[in-house]
């Protein structure tokens, strides 16, 4: 099976398809409620659509990253992880027109390529953070807490930045202004994630079965 087939199969599976439907519904809803009805009102649609989009993608990345990583190294299926990451990046791309549509009239100060690129980079990096989370919870045998831990990690990233007055980890603050520090941190995490995902394992019995 080539990569395209793997991706399309992964996206067509009911778990991801249901979450994709929910994700698109959230985007559509935020678009509907913030599009100004009066012509004189300022158009702030992009701000809510972009925030909803990055929050959903972050939660999906953290959730899939943490849920797919097995506890034992010998059981890790890196192909499945790579395909899941690819499917999430596809979702980010497919939802981009809604953001472009809202950006066109909102005129935010952020450049559009930065905003679109940020979504992809944060999805990639937070998938890696999710894998780390899954591994840690697996070590302490608390993977049952994943449904709580995933949003808690996202809230933790936001709160940590707010508490420290930094703009390193919070994806929302990176949407308010161009943050090279955030891009740097996320790019570093993405590189580490890539190194892990694309380095062949010594023992990988599930490599051939995604």
């Amino acid at each position: 099976m080539n990569a395209l087939n793997l991706l399309s199969h992964r996206l067509a599976r009911s778990d991801l398809l249901q979450l994709a439907t929910l994700f698109f519904a959230v985007l559509f809803f935020s678009f509907v409620i913030t599009w100004p009805s009066a012509p004189s009102a300022s158009n702030d649609t992009w701000f809510s659509v972009a925030q909803a989009r990055i929050l959903c993608l972050s939660l999906l990345a953290l959730g899939y990253g943490s849920a797919l990583l097995e506890v034992k190294k010998s059981q890790v299926n890196k192909v499945a992880l790579r395909v899941a990451l690819g499917a999430l990046l596809c979702l980010a791309l497919l939802s981009a027109p809604v953001e472009v549509m809202s950006y066109a009239l909102s005129y935010p100060s952020l450049p559009l390529p930065y905003s679109l690129g940020l979504m992809l980079l944060d999805t990639y990096a937070l998938f890696g953070v999710g894998m780390l989370l899954g591994r840690l919870l697996g070590i302490i045998r608390l993977r049952a807490l994943l449904p709580l831990a995933v949003p808690a990690v996202l809230v933790g990233l936001i709160m940590a930045d707010l508490a420290l007055g930094l703009e390193l980890l919070n994806p929302l603050s990176a949407l308010s202004q161009v943050s090279l520090a955030h891009l740097g941190v996320m790019a570093t995490i993405a590189v580490v994630t890539s190194l892990y995902l694309f380095t062949p394992s010594k023992i990988s019995p599930k490599e051939s079965t995604p």
Binding site: N5, L17, T21, F24
Partner: peptide, 13 residues
């Protein structure tokens, strides 16, 4: 997009 991804496989993607 959802219909294409669900029903049309790789060409749909």
């Amino acid at each position: 997009v959802l219909v294409l991804v669900r029903l049309a496989g790789a060409p749909g993607l």
